[in-house]
Amino acid sequence: MKPIVLASNRPPERFYRGGAALCAFRGEYGSPAHEPEDWVASTTTVRGEESLGLTTLPGGRVLRDAIEEDPTGWLGDAHARRWGADARLLVKLLDAGQRLPVHAHPHDDFAARHLGRAHGKAEAWYILEGGPVHIGLREEVSQEVLADLVSRQDVDALLGLLHEIPVRPGDVVWVPAGELHAIGAGVLLLELQQPEDLSILLEWDGFAIDGPGEGHLGLGFDLALTAVTTTARSAVEMGALVHAAPPSGSVLPRAADEYFRLERLPVHGAAAIAPGFSVVVVVRGVADLGGLALAAGATVLVPAAAGRVQVSGEAELLIARPPAP
């Protein structure tokens, strides 16, 4: 098994605008209006869909099926012993052509108890093109107040509850499950998340989505909002959520390790990618990765059975991995 270059995998007609910056990053032509996400090495479907969102490998095989047939080869022996064929990772490239709505994602216990899902949805972002992000409450708020703002779609008040922070290329943002957030217009990012498509929408006015019908995951807002964190974030806590990534090595807070890992690898001549299932994104420059000639914007899936992969060139790579087993 060898590293595999992956083509774009963009679900069409998402409910928010974006796609042009994603195409530019990937070196592709086109300016789609509502294709703001590239689901990279995905074994996850768009909520409510049978296959949309799944990655198809060169030759036509679906990645999810390939992993189910050989979890050890793809994910590694230790991972397969603990989690079977569950890759425990979804990677996306996301282009916010407009500000996303204020929303949150459920944690593992809530998702298991109320939705019958194997995971919640913690996530983290590596910023490729900067702009504003809104995350974390400035003051504690009750679920009753949130419910009232949601029912009235008081967008200004909802946004006003959150810290607004400018982010630049090379910053990382850790978004624990339950944390209210919204990505600002113009931000292009690499997202690591648990492999689910579960969002609790507090805002939908002006977006192409049925918020009253879909925003609560079919649970009703009274229950769905109990999954939202309502405590305030101090300046110190915000510094742990949003900060500049170190120039190399692991870039996410330790709290993210139980969900996924992200490594920044500068390449100046020669380097190596340690063994294990990973998704590699070339952020800048050109590189030879295991015999594959890659330019900025390329995405590569590395099976565990590929072992240690040699890299050469002048480039910067981001290496996304599932949690350590």
Rank of each mutant, 00 (worst) to 15 (best):
L89H: 03
V102W: 02
D108L: 13
F110Y: 14
G97N: 12
A111Q: 02
P71K: 03
L90M: 08
A78S: 12
L115I: 05
D108F: 06
P71D: 07
V102H: 00
R113V: 04
G97R: 14
K92I: 04
P71M: 08
H107A: 07
F110Q: 01
D109G: 10
D109R: 11
L89Y: 03
G116R: 11
D70W: 01
Q98T: 11
H114C: 13
V102G: 08
D86L: 14
R81M: 06
P101Q: 15
H79K: 04
G73P: 00
I67E: 04
A104Q: 15
V102T: 01
R82S: 10
A87T: 02
Q98P: 03
D70C: 01
D109A: 15
A112T: 10
H103Y: 11
G73I: 02
D109V: 04
R81W: 07
A78Y: 10
G76I: 03
P71F: 07
G76Q: 05
Q98V: 11
L94G: 08
A112E: 15
W74Y: 14
E68G: 09
L93S: 11
L94R: 10
D86R: 14
G116S: 10
D108I: 10
D95F: 00
T72R: 12
R99H: 05
I67L: 07
L100G: 13
R81S: 08
H103G: 12
W74A: 11
I67F: 08
L115A: 09
Q98G: 11
P71Q: 10
P101A: 14
V91M: 07
A87S: 09
H105E: 12
A87F: 00
D70S: 06
A111M: 07
